[in-house]
Design a protein around this nucleic acid. Structure first.
Length: 664
RNA sequence: GCCGUUGUAGCUCAGGGGUAGAGCAACGCUUUCGUAAAGCGUGGGUCGUAGGUUCAAAUCCUAUCAACGGCACCA
C-alpha cells in the first residue's frame, strides 16, 4: 500500500482489513461509511473506534483503527437493547405523566429501565407501553447527541421534576461531559442523560422486542433507598431471534429443578419448614451418591473427614466475628433449660447465655485443630466435613434447592504455613476442575473477590492474602473476573459460579484465604525453631451446598442425570403376565450387579409402561416378553431413543453396570 | 426484608355472592396386550389462614402466611 502522508488537518483511519485511508480531521463514522459505499452507509448503525463503540456522528480528530458496525452484527444487539430502553422510557413517560426516569441499561438478552412512580406498573400496562414504543420506533426520530454544561443539565432535570436524573448528574465526575441524547424533533423532543452511544434513529430498534416483567429495584442498588419499579424487556434483531429466545426460555422453565423435583419424586419443601428440604427416597439416593463421590475425591486428595456439633456456644461465634456480622441471620437459642408449657418455653430467669446453630463450620474445625500441639511437620492439615449449616436467610432470598436455610456443604479447612498457600491453592483448583469435569460442567465462571468494606484484619494482612490467592490463580493460568469488595469479611475469595437453566448465576465452589480466624481463635503450631506460629487457614468447598449443586445438575441435565446418579437406573417391564418369573429373575440379577432396578409387572400394555417410565426419566428399560424369556434376552430401550435393541441378559447387565460406574 | 404477582382436588387448570368443576393421577372391575396413554366405574376439595360485610362468601373488604418473579442479602 502506498504510504499516506499525514497532514495537519488529516487523520489516518485504519479499517478492519488493514487498509489505511486519510480523511479530514473531524470526519464521522457516517462520512467514512458513505465514502466506502452507499449500501454500507445505509446498513451501518455504529462505529467502533479503537475498540470502543461510538456514535456514527462523532467527529474523529486523531488517527484511529475503526470498524463499522452493521445492524446484523452481534455487537449491534447491545445497542438495539439500549436504544430500546430509551424508547420504552419515552413511551412510559408519554403514557404515565409524572413518572420519573432513572437508569436503563442493556443487559443479557434485553434491557430494563427503572422508573419512580407512586403507582407501580403492572403487566397489564405492557400492551399499551409496547404499542407506544412501536409508534416511537415508527416515528424514526434521530438520536441526537448533545453536550450540556453541567449546571444547565442539573437545572433542566430539576425543573422537570426529574430528581433522580439531577442526582445522577451531580455525582458524575466533573471531568466528564454531560451527554444528552434527544430522540424527538425540536426542543420538545424526548431526551435523556446518557453515556451513549446510540444508533442513528429509533427505527433501528426494530420491532423484535417484548416487555417481560415488572419488578422492584432499589435506587442505586441500596436497600436504604427508595424502591423503584423496574420493567424488563427483551430485544433482538428480528422476529425470528425473538421467537427463538422465547422458545428457549419456555424450554428452560420446563427444566426448573423445583418442577422436576416434584415430577421425579425427588424432594419437596413445605411451609412448616421453609428453606429446608424433605428429601424423598429417590432424591436421597442422588444426595448420597454425590456425597459418596465427593468423599472418594477428598480421601484421595489427603483430607480427613470430621463431624462437629450443630449447636455451639455463642462465644465461638463472637470470637470468630460471625456474631458481630451475621447474628441477624443466625438461629440462636438460649443456653438454659426452660419450662416448656403449651404455648412454648418459659424461662425462670432472662436467658443470658446463648447457643447458635452453626451457620458454617470453620470455628468448629479450628477447635479440632487446637486439640493437642501441632507441629510444622503436621501441616498441611485438611479437615473436611459434610457440614450441615443453618442460616436464617431472608424470605425473599429462598429459592428451591438453590438458596436454603438448612444445607450441607462439602466443606473443608486447610491449615498450612504461608509457604504452602500456593501449592494448596493449586491443589484445590485442580481438584475442583477435575470434579466439575466429572460432573459434566465445563462452563463456569471464576471470580476473584477482594476485601469488603466490613472486614476484620489489618490492611497489611489483606494485602498479603489477596496477593497470595491471586498468585495461585495466575499460576494456574485460569481466566478469572475480579470482583472488588465481594470477599468474605475475614479474607479474599475465589468463587466458582455456575448458571441454572434460565441463566441465573449461583456460587458453588469457593476458596477463601484467611489469616484472621487462626488469630482470633488462637490456632498455632510449633515451627522448626521451636516458636509458636499462626497457621494460615484456607476455607474451601468444591461443590458448595450439595443441595444447590444437585439443583443445578437437575436443571443442567433436564432431569436426565448421568446413570450413576439416577435413583432408578433400570426398569424391567413385562409384556404379558406369563413372563413375570423371568422378569423377576432379570431384576434380581440387575440388583446383584449393583444396578438400582425396579420391576414393572403390572397388567398394563407395554405402550403404557414405556410412556410412563419415559416420562419418569428412567434411563434404561428392559422389556421382556415371551421371546425374551425363551431366549434369555432383554429388549433394551434407552431414554431418548425410540428404538430398542435385543441383547443377551448377561451382556445387557454387564454393559449397564459398566456405564453406571461413578466417574471417580 | 422491599416491590409486584399468585394461592380452588396429588398435578395442570376452569369457575366465581346462592352453599364447588374438568383432564391427568389414585382406587375398583374388565382387558394379558410387543415399545410414548385400553374400556367402564368409584372415591377425593369447606376454594392458603384469620377476621369483616351480607339473609347468604370460595367469590367482595381487611389482615396475615406462603410460593413465584425481581431487588437487597449470600459467612
Amino acid at each position: 500500500m502506498e504510504a499516506l502522508k499525514t497532514k495537519n488537518n488529516m487523520v489516518q483511519i485504519t479499517l478492519p482489513d488493514g487498509a489505511v485511508r486519510a480523511y479530514d480531521s473531524g470526519v464521522t463514522g457516517m462520512d467514512i461509511a458513505e465514502s466506502i459505499s452507499k449500501s454500507l452507509a445505509k446498513a451501518v448503525i455504529a462505529i467502533e473506534i479503537d475498540g470502543e463503540l461510538s456514535d456514527l456522528s462523532l467527529p474523529i480528530e486523531k488517527d484511529a483503527s475503526i470498524s463499522l458496525i452493521k445492524r446484523e452484527d452481534d455487537k449491534a444487539l447491545e445497542m438495539i437493547r439500549h436504544d430500546c430502553a430509551h424508547v420504552m422510557a419515552e413511551a412510559v413517560q408519554t403514557l404515565f405523566p409524572g413518572t420519573q426516569v432513572t437508569i436503563g441499561p442493556a443487559i443479557e438478552n434485553g434491557f430494563y429501565y427503572d422508573f419512580a412512580r407512586n403507582e407501580p406498573f403492572s403487566t397489564e400496562d405492557f400492551d399499551a407501553i409496547e404499542k407506544q414504543m412501536r409508534k416511537i420506533v415508527e416515528r424514526n426520530s434521530k438520536f441526537v447527541r448533545e453536550v450540556w454544561p453541567r449546571e444547565k443539565a442539573i437545572q433542566f432535570f430539576r425543573d422537570k421534576g426529574e430528581m433522580y436524573k439531577a442526582e445522577l448528574i451531580e455525582d458524575l465526575p466533573t471531568s466528564e461531559d454531560i451527554k444528552i441524547y434527544r430522540q424527538g424533533e425540536g426542543d420538545d423532543g424526548w431526551l435523556d442523560l446518557c453515556r451513549g452511544p446510540h444508533m442513528p434513529t429509533t427505527k433501528h430498534v426494530g420491532t423484535a422486542f417484548k416487555l417481560m416483567k415488572v419488578a422492584g429495584a432499589y435506587w442505586r442498588g441500596d436497600s436504604n433507598n427508595a424502591m423503584l419499579t423496574r420493567i424488563y424487556g427483551t430485544a433482538w434483531r428480528d422476529q425470528k431471534e425473538l421467537d427463538t429466545y422465547l422458545t428457549q426460555l419456555e424450554e428452560a422453565e420446563a427444566r426448573d429443578h423445583r418442577k422436576l423435583g416434584r415430577e421425579m419424586g425427588l424432594f419437596h419443601i413445605q411451609e412448616e419448614a421453609q428453606g429446608s428440604v424433605f428429601w424423598h427416597p429417590k432424591g436421597h439416593i442422588i444426595f448420597n451418591q454425590m456425597e459418596a463421590y465427593v468423599r472418594r475425591r477428598l480421601q484421595d486428595d489427603g483430607y480427613n473427614e470430621v463431624r462437629t456439633p450443630q449447636l455451639m456456644h455463642s462465644k465461638f461465634w463472637k470470637a470468630s466475628g460471625h456474631w458481630q456480622k451475621y447474628r441477624q441471620d443466625m438461629f440462636i437459642v438460649p443456653d438454659v433449660v426452660p419450662n416448656n408449657n403449651e404455648e412454648g418455653p418459659v424461662y425462670d430467669q432472662e436467658p443470658k447465655e446463648f447457643m447458635a446453630l452453626k451457620p458454617m463450620n470453620c470455628p468448629a474445625h479450628v477447635q479440632i485443630f487446637n486439640q493437642g500441639t501441632k507441629s510444622y511437620r503436621d501441616l498441611p492439615i485438611r479437615l473436611s466435613e459434610f457440614g450441615c449449616c443453618h442460616r436464617n436467610e431472608a424470605h425473599g432470598a429462598l429459592h428451591g434447592l438453590m438458596r436454603l436455610r438448612q444445607f450441607v456443604q462439602d466443606d473443608a479447612h486447610i491449615f498450612c504455613t504461608e509457604d504452602q498457600i500456593l501449592s494448596e491453592s493449586i491443589k484445590f483448583f485442580t481438584l475442583v476442575q477435575a470434579m466439575y469435569k466429572d460432573l459434566g460442567f465445563d462452563d463456569y465462571k471464576i471470580t476473584f473477590e477482594t476485601r469488603p468494606e466490613m472486614r476484620i484484619g489489618s490492611d497489611a494482612l489483606w494485602d498479603k492474602a489477596e496477593t497470595a490467592l491471586e498468585n495461585a490463580l495466575k499460576e494456574m493460568k485460569i481466566p478469572y473476573q475480579v470482583c472488588e469488595g465481594d470477599g468474605a469479611f475475614y479474607g479474599p475469595k475465589v468463587g466458582f459460579i455456575i448458571r441454572d437453566a434460565i441463566g441465573r448465576e449461583w456460587g458453588c465452589g469457593t476458596l477463601q484465604l484467611d489469616f484472621n480466624l487462626p488469630e482470633r481463635l488462637d490456632a498455632n503450631y510449633i515451627a522448626p525453631d521451636g516458636s509458636k506460629q499462626r497457621p494460615v487457614m484456607l476455607h474451601r468447598a468444591a461443590l458448595g451446598a450439595l443441595e444447590r449443586f444437585i439443583g443445578i445438575m437437575i436443571e443442567s441435565y433436564a432431569g436426565k442425570l448421568p446413570l450413576w446418579l439416577m435413583p432408578v437406573q433400570c426398569v424391567v417391564a413385562t409384556i404379558t403376565g406369563e413372563v413375570d418369573d423371568y422378569a423377576e429373575e432379570v431384576c434380581a440379577q440387575l440388583k446383584a450387579a449393583g444396578i438400582r432396578a425396579e420391576l414393572d409387572i403390572r397388567n398394563e400394555k407395554i405402550n403404557y409402561k414405556v410412556r410412563e417410565h419415559s416420562l419418569a426419566k428412567v434411563p434404561a428399560l428392559f422389556v421382556v416378553g415371551a421371546r425374551e424369556a425363551e431366549e434369555k434376552t432383554v429388549a433394551i430401550r434407552r431414554l431418548g431413543s425410540d428404538g430398542q435393541s435385543v441383547e443377551s441378559l448377561e451382556k445387557a447387565i454387564e454393559s449397564l453396570a459398566l456405564e453406571a460406574k461413578p466417574p471417580y
